[in-house]
Design a protein around this nucleic acid. Structure first.
Length: 1156
RNA sequence: GCCUCGGUGGCGGAAUUGGUAGACGCGCUGGAUUCAAAAUCCAGUAAUCGCAAGGUUGUGUGGGUUCGAUUCCCACCCGAGGUACCA
C-alpha cells in the first residue's frame, strides 16, 4: 500500500467540494446556524487579481499560511470564516481588450477559471459559497452604494466623525457657515443663514460639493498619456507608471476625489490599536506625514520703500486707533451708493478680493483691492466741498502705487452696470510695473517656529501664485527664465538631481514679524508647491537645505543656537537646541521655545499653531472602461446621485475600449449611457432631452474601490438588500488574521482603513479598524539559471566567432582564472572533427585577445534539472539561433553539436553513446536569485509541483522554506525532502503492505514524542512560525520510525495535528483509521505536560564558558550537590590540571560553568 | 540621506528569557540493496591541526558588559525593502 498522493488529493478535494466541508456557519436571529454556537474566527487573504499568467509558486505562500491557521482554528473549536474572491477589475484585462477587442469580462472569467483550478489543486479550505468578484454587478452595486454614502456625508470636526449632509444643510439654514468646523475645501466663501436660503439651488449644490466626503473638483493629477488615465501616487514608481513604465505628467482635470484627509488623525491614532507589522505602520505614519508647527504670515514690502527709508506696512500697520475705529464705524454705516456697490464687488464676485473702508497709510479708502492695487472711491456729499483735498489724496495714493478711480453717488445708483464695467476694465489692466501684490502676505508652514529669529530670507516654490505678482521689473526676465527651466525639468530629473542648488531672487522683500528686518524673497525648486503653502521661511542655521542655499547665493546665516558651530553645516538637532539671539526666546530649549513662540504669534495675530499633514485627498476617477461605473448623472453640469434602489448601474457595452476621439474616457463610446429620471433606467443617448434624460458619468472608479470593504461583504455575501446585515456584522465583527503583501502598505491598506472608519461613523460596521492582526508574507524569489556565451569581439569575422559557443559554469570560472584551462579547451576545440573549419591560428588569436568575454543569458529553469544540469537538446530547440550552438561541458569537453542536418545529428548521437566522453560531461548552468518573473524564465508553476510531488508536499515545502515574513529563494530540489517525509509518515501506518495500527498502549518514549510535538506545533502555529513546525513533524516521524511505533493512540492524534499542513494525507489516514467523517473538525489533541517530565538532565559542563563534556545528573539536585558531583568528576580534574577554580556557576536544570 | 528589516556551514534555515551554535531539510561523500537505474536504507558532513584521542578557530567587522553573548550595549561595513528636497 503505497502513498499515492495523486489519487488521495483528487479524492479529498472532490469530497470537500461536494460536502461543503469548510462552509462557515451563518449567524441567524436566534444565534448561529447549525448545532452549536461557536466563537467566530475570521481568517482573510488579500484576494488576487486574476492575471492571465496564472499562479506561480510565490502566490500561494500567504494562502497556505492562512489556510493552516484557519484549519488549526477549526480544530480549536472556532466557527472559521475563511473566504476567497477576486479583485477582478483592472488594467491588464482592459489592455488586452484594447489589443484584441475581447471583452474584459470574458478575459476575466477565463482567468478566474484558471485561478480556481490552480487554487483547488492546493487543497485550500476556502468557503467558496462566499466568493466575491469586484467586477460582478451584484458586488459592485455595494461599491456604488458606499460611494453614494460618502457623497451624502460631510466630516464634522466638532463631533470628529462623518455626518449626514442633512445636518450640514440645517446648520447652514440656521446660522450660515461661519461657525462650521468641517473637513472641506479651503477658500470657501462665508455666508449667513439668510444668504444660504436665498442662494439658487445650483449654488447651494456647488457649496455642498465643497464639503462632501467624495467631491468633484478640478485637481492637478498624474496624467499618464501612455495609458490614457490618471494614476494615484502609489501607482507611480520613479516618476513613471508602475504598470508599463509610461511617462507621467501633471495635468488639471475635473475629478472625483475622496476626502481621506478628514481622517488623517484617526488613521494615525488607529495604528496604535492594531497588531500590524511595525514597518507597515511606519510606512502609513510617514505617508500621512503629520507634523506639528505653525502657520506664520510675512508681510510683503514695497520694493520702492525697501530700497529707501525703511519698511512700513502698506495696509493696517501703524494707523492710529482713532482711524481704525472710524473705519469700523463707516463700514457699519455705509451710504446707499456704497452699500449698492459693495453688494456687487464683495466675496470676490469680480474675481478679486475687495476690502471695505480699509486703511491705507493714514487714509481710509472706500474700497480697495490690495492684490490689484486698485482703490475705488465713491463720492457722496461729504466730499463734494473737498475736491482739492481729494486730488491731493489721490496723488499721494498714486505715489504709493495705487490706481484710484472715483465714482459719484448718482453714477453708482443710476448706472451700476457701466460702473462695474469700468472697475472690471481696471482690474484686468493693472500693469505689472505697478508692483502688484503689495500688501499681500506670504503664508508659510514651519515645524520650527522657535527658530523664527534665524530667518534670513524667504523661499517660494517657482509655481507659487505670488511669484509673478511680487517680482520686480528688474528681476522679471531672470525669474521667468528660471520658472521656465524648472517647469521643463521632469519630476524624474528633479529627483535624480537633488544636489544642484538653483534659485533666483525676486527683487521683493518680506518683513520679519518680530524684528521688522527685510528678508529677501527668493524662489527655488527645493521648495515644493504641493506641500504646506509652497513657501518656506528660510532658517539657514537650522535647516540644511536652507543652509546650502544660503551658502550658494551668499545669503546671511545668522546663528540663533547657543554654543553651536554652524560654520560647516546647519544644526538641525531640535531636541538638544537652546535658542540664542532671539529676543524673548533666548535661553529656552526647544519645547519651551515652541510653546512661547506659538503663543506670541497667536497673540500678535500673524499666525497660529497648526498640525499639517502630508496626506492628500485621493483622486477617485479613472479614464478607463474596466472599472465600477459611478452611480452619477449630470444635471446642468452638477452631479446627481442615482437613488440606491436602482443600483447596480451596470457597465455599458462599448465598441472600442480606447478613449474617444475628442478625449473623453472609454465610456464616451457607449451609445446607451444616459439616465432617465422618469423611468429610472439607463437609456440611449439619443433620448437625451435635458428634461428627464441626462448624461451619466464617463469615468470609472479606481482599482482600490472594490477592495476597500470586501472583507465586510464576505460576512453576508449573498444579501441582496443590504451591504452587510446587522446580525452578520455584529457576529463576525472584524478580521482576526489578515495575510497579504506589504506592497499595499500605502494603497489598499490605507484606503480600506479610511472606508472602514467612514462606515463605522455611519453605523454600518461596529468597529473602526477591520483587521486586528496583519502579517505580510515575504516574496518567494526565483532562482534564475544562466548559460554563458563565450563571445569574441576581435575575431568577429572568423568562422569560429560566428559560432554560438556556451561554456559550462565552472569552465567559465576556470577560463577566467587560469590560462592553462584555456589551452586545454583550445586543444579540445581543435581536436574535434566538426570544428575543423577554424584554423588554429584563429583560435589562438581570438583566445589571446578576447578570452574572458562572457555574456550570461537567462535560460528557462524547466530545462535545468535539480543538479543544475542543462537539458542541452531542449535548450537548442527553444530558439532557432541556438540550434547549432556548441556546448562545452564541465570538464571542458564539447558535448555535441548539431552542426549539419541529417547525418550530422545521427553522428552526434553516436558520439554521445560511444565516444570517449560518453555523456559524462554535463553542462552546468549558473544560478542567481532574482524576483520571479516571466522575462527571467525563472517562474515555477505550482501545477507542475502538485503533479510531481503532490499538494501536501507543496504546502509543507513552502512553509519549510523559511520564516513566513521573510523573502526567500525557491529551489525545487529541496521539495524531495518533504515528499520523503510524507512517505515515511505513511509507512508508520502500514505494516507488511497493509494499513494497520495496533491498539497497544504506547510506551513512555512514544508518548513523549507525541506530546513534545503537540506542544511545539501548537506554539509554532500560534506564533506563525510554520517553518519550524515542519521540522518538528520531521523529527517526530524520524523518532517514531526509530521506535517502530505503530500505535493508534500515537498515530491518530499525529494525523490531527498534521492536518492543517498536509490535509489530504491526514484525511486519508483518518479514513483508514476507521473514521467516517472529515478530520477537519476533530478536536486538536490536548497537550499533557506529564509526558514530558524528566527525571534527569544531561548537564553541559563548561570551563570559562566553553563546553567540554556532559554529565547525566538527576533533576532536583541542589546547586551544591551538582557542584560536588561535577568537581569530583575525573574530566573536571583533567581540565583543571590541579588548579583551583575561582568560581563555579551552577544553574540547576541548565548549565555548569567553571571559571579557572 | 532617512525609516524598517536582515547578515549563522556549499545552500534554505534552527537556537523560546543571556546558558551545549549549526536542529530539520537540500546538496555532497562513502556504504548497503540492484544486472543496472530509480526508489529505499545506513554512516559521515562548519573550518583547521592530528593516525587517533583530542586541540584550536568560528554566528558581517571592531570594541564593551557578563562566569557565559548568534542573543544585550556602542561604533562601523554590507545586503534587501520602503521613502524621498515634507519646511
Amino acid at each position: 500500500m503505497e502513498y499515492n498522493f495523486r489519487k488521495i488529493e483528487a479524492d479529498w478535494q472532490k469530497y470537500w467540494a461536494e460536502n461543503q466541508t469548510f462552509k462557515a456557519e451563518n449567524p441567524t436571529l436566534s444565534g448561529v446556524e447549525g448545532n452549536s454556537i461557536k466563537p467566530k474566527y475570521y481568517v482573510l487573504d488579500m484576494f488576487p487579481y486574476p492575471s492571465g499568467a496564472g499562479l506561480h509558486v510565490g502566490h500561494p505562500l500567504g494562502y497556505i499560511a492562512s489556510d493552516i491557521y484557519a484549519r488549526y482554528k477549526r480544530h480549536k473549536g472556532f466557527n472559521v470564516l475563511h473566504p476567497q474572491g477576486y479583485d477582478s477589475f483592472g488594467l491588464p484585462a482592459e489592455q488586452y481588450a484594447i489589443q484584441t477587442g475581447q471583452h474584459p469580462a470574458i478575459t476575466t472569467e477565463a482567468n478566474i477559471k484558471t485561478y480556481r483550478k490552480q487554487l483547488d489543486q492546493i487543497g485550500f479550505s476556502f468557503d467558496w459559497s462566499r466568493e466575491v468578484r469586484t467586477s460582478d454587478p451584484n458586488y459592485y452595486k455595494w461599491t456604488q452604494w458606499i460611494f453614494i454614502q460618502l457623497f451624502n456625508s460631510w466630516y464634522n470636526k466638532e463631533s470628529d466623525k462623518a455626518e449626514d449632509i442633512s445636518t450640514l444643510i440645517s446648520i447652514f439654514s440656521s446660522e450660515g457657515n461661519s461657525k462650521v468646523k468641517a473637513a472641506c475645501d479651503h477658500d470657501i466663501e462665508r455666508f449667513t443663514a439668510e444668504e444660504w436660503k436665498n442662494f439658487s439651488e445650483e449654488k447651494q449644490q456647488k457649496i455642498l460639493l465643497q464639503y462632501r466626503l467624495t467631491f468633484l473638483s478640478e485637481t492637478e493629477v498624474n496624467w499618464c498619456p501612455g495609458l490614457g488615465t490618471v494614476l494615484a501616487n502609489d501607482e507611480i514608481v520613479n516618476g513613471v507608471s508602475e504598470r508599463g513604465g509610461h511617462q507621467v505628467i501633471r495635468k488639471k482635470m475635473m475629478q472625483w476625489s475622496m476626502r481621506i484627509t478628514a481622517y488623517a488623525q484617526r488613521l494615525l491614532d488607529g495604528l496604535a490599536k492594531i497588531d500590524w507589522p511595525q514597518s507597515l505602520k511606519d510606512s502609513q505614519t510617514y505617508w500621512i506625514g503629520r507634523s506639528e508647527g505653525a502657520m506664520v504670515n510675512f508681510q510683503i514690502l514695497s520694493p520702492a520703500l525697501s530700497e529707501g527709508k525703511g519698511a512700513k506696512y502698506m495696509t493696517g500697520g501703524n494707523n492710529s486707533h482713532i482711524l481704525l475705529e472710524k473705519a469700523k464705524e463707516m463700514r457699519a454705516n455705509p451710504t446707499q451708493a456704497e452699500a449698492i456697490l459693495w453688494e456687487q464687488i464683495k466675496s470676490k464676485k469680480l474675481g478679486s478680493k475687495f476690502r471695505q473702508q480699509h486703511l491705507i497709510e493714514d487714509f481710509i479708502a472706500d474700497f480697495v483691492c490690495l492684490s490689484k492695487k486698485l482703490i475705488i472711491e465713491v463720492d457722496g456729499e461729504i466730499h463734494e466741498s473737498q475736491v482739492e483735498k481729494d486730488a491731493e489724496r489721490t496723488s499721494i495714493l498714486e505715489d504709493k502705487g495705487y490706481k484710484v478711480i472715483r465714482f459719484k453717488n448718482e453714477e453708482v445708483i443710476g448706472d451700476l452696470e457701466s460702473v462695474l464695467e469700468k472697475i472690471n476694465y481696471e482690474l484686468s489692466n493693472v500693469p505689472l510695473s505697478l508692483g502688484e501684490g503689495l500688501g499681500e502676505r506670504i503664508s508659510v508652514f514651519t515645524t520650527r517656529p522657535d527658530t523664527i529669529f534665524g530667518v534670513s530670507f524667504m523661499t517660494l516654490a517657482p509655481e507659487h501664485d505670488l511669484v509673478p505678482k511680487i517680482t520686480t521689473p528688474e528681476q522679471k526676465a531672470e525669474v521667468e527664465a528660471y520658472i521656465k527651466s524648472t517647469a521643463k525639468r521632469s519630476e524624474l530629473e528633479r529627483m535624480a538631481d537633488v544636489k544642484t542648488i538653483s534659485g533666483v531672487f525676486t527683487g521683493a522683500y518680506a518683513e520679519h514679524p518680530f524684528t521688522g528686518k527685510q528678508l529677501p524673497i527668493w524662489i527655488g525648486d527645493y521648495v515644493l508647491a504641493g506641500y504646506g503653502t509652497g513657501a518656506v521661511m528660510s532658517v539657514p542655521c537650522g535647516d540644511q537645505r536652507d543652509y546650502v542655499f544660503a551658502k550658494h547665493f551668499n545669503l546671511e546665516i545668522p546663528n540663533i543656537f547657543e554654543g553651536v558651530d554652524i560654520s560647516e553645516e546647519a544644526y538641525a538637532d531640535k531636541e538638544n537646541s537652546v535658542i540664542a539671539n532671539s529676543d524673548f526666546l533666548n535661553g529656552l530649549p526647544y519645547k519651551k521655545a515652541m510653546k512661547r513662540i506659538i503663543f506670541e504669534i497667536e497673540q500678535q495675530g500673524f499666525g497660529y499653531g497648526k498640525v499639517n499633514y502630508r496626506l492628500r485627498d485621493a483622486v477617485f476617477s479613472r479614464q478607463r472602461y474596466w472599472g465600477e461605473p459611478f452611480p452619477v448623472y449630470y444635471k446642468n453640469g452638477l452631479p446627481q446621485m442615482i437613488d440606491p434602489q436602482y443600483l447596480p448601474i451596470v457597465l455599458p457595452e462599448v465598441e472600442k475600449y480606447l478613449p474617444t476621439e475628442d478625449g473623453k474616457p472609454p465610456l464616451g463610446n457607449a451609445t446607451v449611457w444616459s439616465w432617465d429620471t422618469n423611468t429610472n433606467k439607463i437609456v440611449s443617448n439619443d433620448l437625451m432631452d435635458h428634461k428627464t434624460v441626462f448624461p451619466l458619468e464617463l469615468n470609472t472608479m479606481p482599482g482600490w474601490a472594490g477592495s476597500s470593504s470586501y472583507f465586510n461583504r464576505y460576512m453576508d455575501v449573498n444579501n441582496p438588500n443590504e451591504f452587510v446585515s446587522k446580525e452578520a456584522v455584529e457576529y463576525w465583527q472584524d478580521v482576526d488574521l489578515y495575510i497579504g503583501g506589504s506592497e499595499h502598505a500605502t494603497g489598499h491598506l490605507l484606503y480600506s482603513r479610511f472606508w472602514q472608519k467612514f462606515l463605522f461613523d455611519k453605523g454600518v460596521v461596529p468597529v473602526d479598524e477591520y483587521a486586528k492582526k496583519l502579517i505580510n508574507q515575504g516574496m518567494i524569489l526565483g532562482t534564475s539559471a544562466f548559460v554563458y556565451r563565450w563571445e569574441f569581439k576581435k575575431g568577429k569575422d572568423s568562422e569560429f566567432a560566428k559560432k554560438t559557443i556556451f561554456v559550462s559554469k565552472s569552465v567559465m570560472d576556470r577560463i577566467i582564472k587560469e590560462r592553462s584551462a584555456i589551452e586545454h579547451t583550445e586543444k579540445q576545440l581543435l581536436e574535434q572533427d566538426h570544428i575543423n573549419l577554424l584554423s588554429a591560428c584563429e583560435v589562438k588569436n581570438t583566445i589571446e585577445n578576447e578570452w574572458s568575454n562572457f555574456t550570461p543569458i537567462h535560460v528557462d529553469v524547466s530545462f535545468v534539472n535539480t543538479h543544475d544540469e542543462l537539458d542541452v537538446e531542449a535548450f537548442r530547440n527553444w530558439r532557432e539561433e541556438y540550434k547549432n550552438a556548441v556546448f562545452i561541458g564541465e570538464s571542458g569537453e564539447i558535448i555535441s553539436s548539431t552542426h549539419s542536418k541529417g547525418d550530422g545529428v545521427e553522428l552526434d548521437k553516436k558520439a554521445l553513446s560511444f565516444g570517449e566522453n560518453l555523456g559524462g560531461d554535463k553542462y552546468i548552468v549558473g544560478r542567481e536569485v532574482e524576483k520571479m518573473s516571466k522575462s527571467k524564465y525563472n517562474v515555477v508553476n505550482p501545477d507542475q509541483i502538485c503533479e510531481e510531488y503532490g499538494a501536501d508536499s507543496l504546502r509543507m515545502f513552502e512553509m519549510f522554506l523559511g520564516p513566513l515574513e521573510q523573502a526567500k529563494p525557491w529551489k525545487t530540489s529541496g521539495i524531495s525532502g518533504v515528499l520523503s517525509f510524507l512517505k515515511k509518515l505513511w509507512k508508520l501506518y502500514v505494516v507488511e503492505g497493509k494499513f494497520y495500527v495496533s491498539d497497544e498502549t504506547p510506551t513512555k518514549e512514544e508518548y513523549k514524542v507525541l506530546h513534545k510535538t503537540i506542544k511545539k506545533v501548537e506554539e509554532d502555529i500560534e506564533s506563525f512560525s510554520f517553518n519550524t513546525s515542519v521540522s518538528t513533524f520531521m523529527i517526530a516521524v524520524n523518532e517514531l520510525t526509530a521506535l517502530k511505533c505503530n500505535k493508534r493512540s500515537i498515530l491518530e492524534p499525529l494525523a490531527v495535528i498534521l492536518e492543517p499542513y498536509a490535509p489530504h494525507i491526514s484525511e486519508e489516514l483518518w479514513k483508514n483509521l476507521g473514521h467516517t467523517t472529515s478530520i477537519s473538525t476533530v478536536d486538536f489533541p490536548l497537550f499533557e505536560a506529564k509526558y514530558l517530565v524528566e527525571s534527569s538532565k544531561e548537564y553541559p559542563v563548561s570551563f570559562n564558558g566553553k563546553m567540554r563534556f556532559k554529565v547525566e545528573l538527576p533533576l532536583g539536585l541542589s546547586a551544591k550537590e551538582i557542584e560536588d558531583v561535577v568537581m569530583a568528576h575525573e574530566k573536571t580534574k583533567e581540565q583543571l590540571q590541579g588548579r583551583t577554580p575561582k568560581k563555579v556557576i551552577i544553574v540547576p536544570g541548565k548549565i555548569v560553568n567553571i571559571v579557572g
